[in-house]
Each structure stands twice: as structure tokens, then as C-alpha cells.
Design a protein around this nucleic acid. Structure first.
Lengths: 169, 169
DNA sequence: TTTGAAACGTTATAATATAACATTTAAAGA
DNA sequence: TCTTTAAATGTTATATTATAACGTTTCAAA
């Protein structure tokens, strides 16, 4: 179980470049499978979204893009929409922000843990949550197309921090 | 069970004025209990949010307020924020819109069914969903402060409609 | 009756997102 | 290889959602 935990909330010191490389390879494959073009721009935006394990806003992405040259909002939004459609990234509605999808190989609903302290996020994709939601909906004759679950709170390392701060007071 | 179902997705023909009256009485009570002022403006905004069993945008509320006289965005947002803080309304993040809370007597997380066809919504507040989410979070040492669940799909009556349309083709 | 905090008004502007149309690119057929 | 055409991108303008900042009013408690 502890291996699983480490997969969920990634520590600050992991080899993040490797994360990005793996994500990029996955994305490449997904695009190929679906006959979509993974252009330089889309690749760059995807990379920017992945560059932190934190949700990033569209205009933040835009700013970083502008470091390379001129760019306008539609450029960013089009790339984000493309990536969203393919399930390569998700949108966190409560933050107006975007995150890289951890397992884009198959389509799935978004279930997110978001740390209110450090803003780190983790994707759950729990079949149990999905089943429970579908059952609750079925109980009232509602036909589910998709769902999003956004869970705000404290990630493991921030819980520890808060705890030790409390002790020091 | 069928009584429960009718509570969830309200039919078009129910006595909606009565809904509003009941909601207003509840709101009144909640405000009193917490020593908050339920001013004319707040009352009016609350009423406007409740006037349909559908999510309503802040600027839609503004437009309706302006039928009574001059009003600017901050007026609406302040009233909405007040009502949100007290749990008298909820915000549907995926729609940037607001809905009246069906049981504001105790604080709770938002769990919503939203019909993609007619835009009607229902509030679930399912302890089972809450428990499942909390358990999933606990599995990865995450401390939950709050969550929102937004479920998009088809409500019972729109399912029937779509079904009969299919048959007519 | 004063007074101070809360509520509200008003103006300006920030932050997020899209519409509409021009231009470029690149894959697929001639 | 050239042409064509659909997809992708660039560009300008603007829509939509939300808040900052500050002045004025209201109203309950002292």
C-alpha cells in the first residue's frame, strides 16, 4: 500500500524531468492512436502544464509561452481544449486551472485531491467513488455522462508541517 | 423509495412559489440563528436564485435585479458570497452558476446532479458518497476539508424524452 | 442620540474565455 | 512534384466572470 501512496502525492525531490518525459511519450502514443497531430505548440503547452505537479491557469501558460515569442489567449485555449478533448489534461473547475492527466491511456472522470496549503494535486480515479456516484444517481433515475470530484484539504506533507508548527507554538 | 425520487428531481408542474416560501423561511431562521442580517437585497437575490430549479449565473441575477432599479456587479457578488458563506446557496463550479440549497439547516458538501438537456439540477448530499470520498482520501493520507461532486447527464424526464424521440426516428 | 461596524453604492479594472476572420502548414490526391 | 484543401495557428477584438478601492448609508448597541 505504501508504494501506492507515493504514486499519489509526489514528493518535491523526485526526478520530475522523467515525469514529463514519460507523460510526453504517453501523449505521443495517444495522439498517434487517435490520428491526431501532436504539434510543436500542443507539445509545448502540454509540457508547461506538466512542468509542476500543480494546477496551472491558462494565462500562466500564456505568459510562459510568450517567453518563446508572441502568443495570444486563443492559442493557449485551443491547445488546452485539444488536450482536454483527448484526455491528456484535466480542468480543475474550482480553480479555473489545468493539470496533466496521470493515466491518459483510457478515458475516465476526474477525481482530484488538491492541497490548500501547497497547491499540489493528485488524481484519484477511484472505481469505488465512481461506482458510488453512479449508484446514487441510478437511485434517482439519473443517467450519468460524466462527473468531477474536487476534494480540497491538506496533503500528507503539509499535514506534517502544520502539525509541527502547532507543536512549536 | 418513489417518494424520495420525487424529492430529487422536481417536476415542472409543482407549486414552485411554495418552494420559494419554504426556502425563504429556512433562510430566515438560519440567519437569525447565526446573528446575520437577512436584508432586503440578500432576500431578493436569494429569491432570484431560487426562482428556477436551475443554476443561475451572477450576471443573470444582476439583470433581474436591474429590473427593480440600478445595480452593479459587486452588489450581486456580495449578496451571493453572503449566501454561500451561510450555506444558503451553492456554487456549481463547472457552470459558474448558483443554486439554492435544499437543506441549509446543517453544513454539508455539495453534490449535484445536473441535466445537460434541460439544465435542471438536484442536490444529493449522500453520506455514502461522502464516506467513500473520505475513505479514498484517507488511503493516501490526505486530510479532507471539503469536496464538491458535479455529475452531468440526463434527468429522468429528459431520458424519457430522448427515448421517445429515438423511437420516432 | 451618538457612534461604529456592517451593508450597500459606484467606478474602475482584473481575470478568464471566446468570436471572427486572416494566414500558414502539411497531409493526401492528382 | 504540384496542387489542393482541411487543419492548425495568428491576430484583433470583445464577451464573460469577478474583484479592488473607496465613498455613502443604515442600523443596532452603547
Amino acid at each position: 500500500m505504501s508504494g501506492r501512496k507515493e504514486l499519489q502525492f509526489i514528493s518535491g525531490e523526485h526526478d520530475h524531468q522523467r515525469c514529463i518525459t514519460v507523460a510526453m511519450a504517453n501523449a505521443e502514443q495517444v495522439c498517434q492512436q487517435r490520428g491526431q497531430r501532436f504539434t510543436a505548440l500542443r507539445r509545448r503547452v502540454f509540457e508547461l502544464v506538466w512542468q509542476q505537479h500543480k494546477p496551472i491557469g491558462a494565462y500562466e501558460v500564456l505568459e510562459k509561452l510568450q517567453e518563446d515569442g508572441r502568443a495570444a489567449p486563443p492559442t493557449v485555449y485551443r491547445a488546452l481544449d485539444f488536450l482536454l478533448d483527448l484526455g491528456l489534461i484535466h480542468r480543475i473547475n474550482s480553480l479555473n486551472a489545468y493539470v496533466g492527466c496521470v493515466h491518459p491511456q483510457y478515458p475516465h472522470d476526474g477525481q482530484f485531491l488538491i492541497c490548500e496549503s501547497c497547491k499540489a494535486f493528485a488524481e484519484l480515479d477511484s472505481p469505488l467513488i465512481t461506482t458510488t456516484i453512479e449508484q446514487s444517481a441510478a437511485d434517482v433515475d439519473f443517467e450519468v455522462h460524466r462527473h468531477t470530484v474536487e476534494i480540497m484539504g491538506l496533503c500528507p506533507r503539509c499535514r506534517i508541517k502544520v502539525c509541527s508548527e502547532d507543536n512549536n507554538e
